[in-house]
């Protein structure tokens, strides 16, 4: 059987989540591997969420936010960019494959980009195989 990765998507309410909505309403086809969680802003994301997701068996984590400068709250994603950049370095230095974590800026009108990013990311994670490095539960 083919390996179907479990991917956690964390999407900002104003841009990426709406963009995902648009991808759906325009009936674009993209893999179903992403379980999306909506947050009010990408800066709401605590890096521990990402570590926790990997511990609970996520094979990849995709974070979506507004384009820098377009944040609904003005500067939220500018802080988020620094936080997530450091998170990426931590995962990498701890030994996680960097391709399992991706941050992408997707605006509300970019349904097509959302579909493309999900497709690309799912293929990347699929190629890496199941994530076992952080996983703590063997189920």
């Amino acid at each position: 059987m083919d390996f179907e990765p479990k991917i956690l998507g964390i999407a900002c309410n104003w841009c990426t989540y709406t963009g995902a909505d648009l991808a759906g309403t325009t009936r674009l086809k993209y893999p179903q591997n992403v379980r999306t969680v909506r947050v009010m802003c990408s800066s709401r994301i605590n890096p521990s969420f990402i570590i926790r997701a990997f511990q609970l068996g996520a094979d990849g984590v995709l974070v979506g936010g507004c384009h820098p400068g377009d944040c609904h709250y003005g500067t939220g994603n500018l802080y988020a960019r620094r936080k997530l950049a450091v998170t990426k370095k931590i995962l990498e230095f701890a030994g996680m494959e960097p391709k399992r974590f991706r941050v992408e800026w997707i605006s509300a009108s970019e349904g097509k980009k959302y579909a493309e990013v999900v497709e690309e990311f799912t293929n990347d994670v699929k190629a890496l195989g199941p994530q076992t490095k952080f996983k703590i539960r063997k189920d």
């Binding site: 890096p47 521990s48 450091v86 370095k89 931590i90 701890a94």
Partner: peptide, 25 residues
Amino acid sequence: RWADKSPTPDGHLMYHLTRFYHLAG
């Protein structure tokens, strides 16, 4: 409760990686 306070294998990564993050920069 982010991680076990007792030294279980599950909590090692969470404790240390989060602490590293909190001290980054």
